[in-house]
């Protein structure tokens, strides 16, 4: 069983929900990320989404755009993101790591080389924002052959037909984009999410992680009541942005926020 599948299974047994932070690899600097990943695990996160910096993050709001820009200024890349994952794995063999990013860096590396490199880095899942299943079968097959879960997105306007498609194409979990918009947007509506998740659950047994627009312990708790996992990204990265002259403070504030979210979700 994949690390992601067993993580969600364990959580389900105890009735807990997955806390999934998203951070951009190498933001604000390359050596910030691995210690933060370990500290986040200590704070109680279940899965880590590691963003691959990209020059043109079309689906991201300003906060994650700027995270990419900061990381790229340090010459971060897909290759170096994989190195960060390898470094993390040296002392953590249990927490699933999901790479999240855009297709072009993977295209440039080549699908097969990428799948091999991800396997060597012991990556658990890959979520490529601009690669829908229609175009993604070749890449997904290479990942699946290496026990890496291809993770797909669903959105508020996804039809039943698309839910079924993602159920067939994806594994690990489904990432539900909670609102029409970009990451970090502010108009999350819990009732809408709840209704949509009912519709989605009718067509898939995969766990559903909900992201986009989760800001604080309160929204995380509300989402945890309806989904299987909560993804939080922009709110964490805002702490980096607010403390660019003091990365230790950023690290500290991120962990504090995650601890408070963990508590709220487990209540």
């Amino acid at each position: 069983m994949s690390r992601l599948a067993s993580t969600f299974e364990e959580l389900a047994k105890t009735g807990r929900k997955a806390l999934i932070p998203f951070i951009t690899a190498g933001d604000p600097s390359p050596n910030f990320t691995v210690p933060l990943m370990h500290a986040m695990v200590e704070a109680g996160v279940d899965v880590i989404e590691l963003g691959i910096p990209f020059s043109d993050p079309m689906a991201d709001g300003p906060v994650i755009q700027r995270a990419s820009e900061r990381a790229l200024a340090h010459k971060m890349s897909l290759r170096r993101t994989l190195e960060i994952a390898i470094e993390f794995r040296k002392t953590n063999q249990t927490t699933p790591v999901v790479l999240m990013g855009y297709l072009n860096p993977i295209e440039a590396m080549g699908y097969e080389d990428f799948a091999n490199a991800a396997q060597r880095a012991d990556i658990d899942g890959v979520l490529t924002v601009d690669l829908p299943p229609e175009e993604g079968m070749e890449c997904s097959a290479l990942l699946k052959a290496r026990d890496i879960d291809p993770i797909f997105l669903l959105a508020p306007n996804s039809t039943d037909e698309r839910v079924q498609k993602m159920d067939l194409a994806g594994s690990g979990y489904i990432y539900y984009v909670s609102l029409k918009g970009v990451t970090g947007a502010g108009h999350l509506n819990i009732t809408d999410v709840e209704n949509k998740l009912k519709q989605i659950k009718a067509h898939t047994n995969l766990p559903i992680a909900v992201g986009f627009g989760v800001k604080d312990a309160q929204t995380a708790q509300a989402i945890a009541n309806v989904g299987d996992g909560v993804v939080i990204g922009s709110a964490l990265i805002s702490k980096i942005e607010a403390n660019l002259d003091n990365p230790e403070q950023a690290h500290k504030e991120i962990i504090e926020l995650l601890v408070s979210i963990r508590q709220a979700m487990d209540n």
Partner: peptide, 21 residues
């Protein structure tokens, strides 16, 4: 340039070895 994916389609692009535009 070289083939890659940007703005919704696969085509020739100006990008570096890491796929950054």
């Amino acid at each position: 340039g070289r083939p890659g994916v940007l703005h919704g389609n696969r085509t020739y692009l100006m990008c570096d070895d890491d796929g950054e535009i």
